[in-house]
Write a protein that binds this DNA or RNA. Sequence first.
DNA 1: AAGTGGTCTAGACCACAAC
DNA 2: TTGTGGTCTAGACCACTTT
Lengths: 245, 245
Amino acid sequence: MQEQAANTVEHQRQKIIAYVKRYIREKHLQENDKIPSENELSRLFQANRNTVRSALTFLKAQGIIYSEKGRGFFVAKKPNPIVYKHDISLGFSEALNQGRQEYTSEVLDVRLALPTAKERKLLELDENDNVYYLKQLRTKNGNHFAVGLSILPEKYVPGFENHLNDFCGVNNILINAYNYTHPLCKRIQLTASLPKKEELELLNISENIPILKQEGLFYIEGVGNIEYFIVRARGDSFRFSMDFQ
Amino acid sequence: MQEQAANTVEHQRQKIIAYVKRYIREKHLQENDKIPSENELSRLFQANRNTVRSALTFLKAQGIIYSEKGRGFFVAKKPNPIVYKHDISLGFSEALNQGRQEYTSEVLDVRLALPTAKERKLLELDENDNVYYLKQLRTKNGNHFAVGLSILPEKYVPGFENHLNDFCGVNNILINAYNYTHPLCKRIQLTASLPKKEELELLNISENIPILKQEGLFYIEGVGNIEYFIVRARGDSFRFSMDFQ
DNA sequence: AAGTGGTCTAGACCACAAC
DNA sequence: TTGTGGTCTAGACCACTTT
């Protein structure tokens, strides 16, 4: 009773995927609601459990459902969008605070080291110039949504690590502690990628959530390139936006 | 893909995944080189073919290998990066041509229809205004890298479908066929997501390749909002870049 | 104890490619 | 004809959660 579905026929897996999607939609299931178990779907479609699992694995990879061992499969939450409105004259933190989106930034690590060749070139540094690496974790409503790495030449910000109490953005330190004018954005680049191990852990996301990577170079008039930053944000909840007049 | 783990034991699947990765690296395999077949790996690891398939499916989803029915599994190509330098006064096609990156754009579909509520609002249209939907496939060196959808109000471009011979960008049509001044960019938004079925097919990518989605609104001085476009590009080969002076 | 998801084995039939 | 990947069935054992 092998009744192999020919190639033109819609495969079992596809049917099950479509069924579960429809099920969630038509029953108006919300975040964390349970969907039928593997065994139930197996009976319903007269299909093997492996086939059902294949379909559910796909939906899991799509971020539509998640599973808990011993409990079942559940509807995944739709992340709330976070809009980042870029402005040449604003830093990342400031831009995010603009839009009434209160969020917190936590310093994970700060260290002084030699920059990579790429970073040295971008920041226009000499052979022996050191840079500060400042790693931050950005959170909104209790959800980690981005990891940020700021790279600043030591010669412009000596003793930088001493100004990290009550941290609320690199630019605040530059202006208040070093009396610089506000940094301006020189260039910005965006790419989409998959999360690295660090983001998997820090952002607590699955391997299939895309990452929106944002790189920016800031300078201060009369000083030089002051900061090169790399922000890696959850692609499913982060939107980069820019208006031109 | 799978929430591997809990167990301290390294699973067969993980071993096979690691083996294939190492195999490609250590044997210096290049694009399109063949890797051991399912049966060979099955014998080598004393594992069932299903287990081997599970590992290879994962590597396929990661974009590391691809398969051809009846032939085998092969090393996937590393995509060449494509840099898109955004400029307020340039369209997508023009910006891409700037950088010596010759590419082609193919019209997949054009149709006239009522816009969605969101599109009507963005383009500031009246209830009964129709829009042209122009779907394009962008190719570079024979590789499809982006799907673009341009939405233009019919009232600004009546008979738009008659100007698509020798298509080389929407802006060329606007300027040459309708005598408009060059459109300017009003707003741009970027997000990262996973490919939809359409992109899987058109861009010929695996489910795990992230997509960089770029939305833009263009206007023409004295006319109005002329175009709303949505470009969905391969995240692994597309870089959005913008310079400020 | 019963149910659920996670991993894996064994084996079937199919469509396609290469020899 | 043989080998390859693609789909699917049947069933095992495990770890975990719920009742």
